[in-house]
Each structure stands twice: as C-alpha cells, then as structure tokens.
Deep mutational scan, measured.
Amino acid sequence: NKFNKELQWATWEIFNLPNLNEEQVKAFIDSLRDDPSQSANLLAEAKKLNDAQA
C-alpha cells in the first residue's frame, strides 16, 4: 500500500531529524497517524522546522 510505505518513510525521517525536540517529534508522528495521506506535507513541515531550529 502506497500510503503505508510513505507513512513508514515519513515516520523514520521525522524520528531522525536532529533539531526537533521530543514533543515536536511526537506531535508530527501523531499527525501522521491521524492522516497518513498527509505524510509528504507533514514531512516537509517537519524538515522546515528542523532547519529553522538548526
């Protein structure tokens, strides 16, 4: 299933962003679980936040 692979990839990527704190990671993962179809958008937002906090 396409969404499942995207969800797994986005989850792994978010867990490995070095500049997000635990609460931010949890919030993004919760959002992914709530709406897996938004995984690409949520990953992009997480990466933006990660870069901003570098």
Rank of each mutant, 00 (worst) to 15 (best):
P36R: 02
A52D: 08
N1K: 05
Q53V: 06
N16T: 07
N21R: 13
K5N: 13
N19G: 05
A10Q: 04
E6W: 10
E6L: 13
F15M: 15
N16E: 07
N16A: 10
D51L: 11
E13H: 05
A54Y: 07
A46S: 02
S37E: 06
R33F: 15
N50G: 02
R33N: 14
L42G: 01
L43I: 09
I29N: 02
K26Y: 08
K2E: 15
W9V: 10
W9G: 04
I14V: 05
A52M: 11
Q8H: 06
P18K: 09
R33M: 15
A54H: 06
N19D: 06
K47Y: 13
I29V: 06
L49G: 00
W12S: 12
P18N: 06
K47P: 00
A27K: 11
I29F: 05
A10K: 02
D51W: 07
S37Q: 08
T11H: 04
Q53L: 11
D30Y: 07
A10H: 07
E6R: 03
K47S: 05
L42R: 05
A27S: 11
L42Q: 04
D30F: 06
V25T: 07
R33H: 15
Q24H: 02
A54D: 09
E13F: 13
A27P: 01
E23K: 12
K5M: 03
E45T: 09
E23V: 06
A27L: 08
N50H: 03
L42A: 04
E23P: 05
V25Y: 03
N1A: 03
S39Q: 07
R33S: 10
D34M: 12
N1E: 14
N19P: 00
Q53F: 06
Q53T: 06
Q24K: 01
D34E: 12
D51S: 11
A40Q: 12
I29A: 04
L49E: 02
K48W: 09
K5D: 15
K5Y: 05
P36G: 04
E6T: 05
I29D: 01
R33Y: 15
K26V: 05
S39K: 03
Q53N: 08
E22V: 14
L43Y: 04
D34L: 13
L17E: 00
L49H: 02
A40S: 09
E22I: 13
E23N: 12
K26P: 00
W12R: 12
W9T: 10
N19Y: 12
K2A: 15
L17D: 00
L7H: 03
L42W: 05
N4L: 14
E22L: 13
L7S: 04
Q53I: 08
E22R: 08
Q8N: 06
Q8P: 02
L20G: 00
I29E: 03
L32K: 00
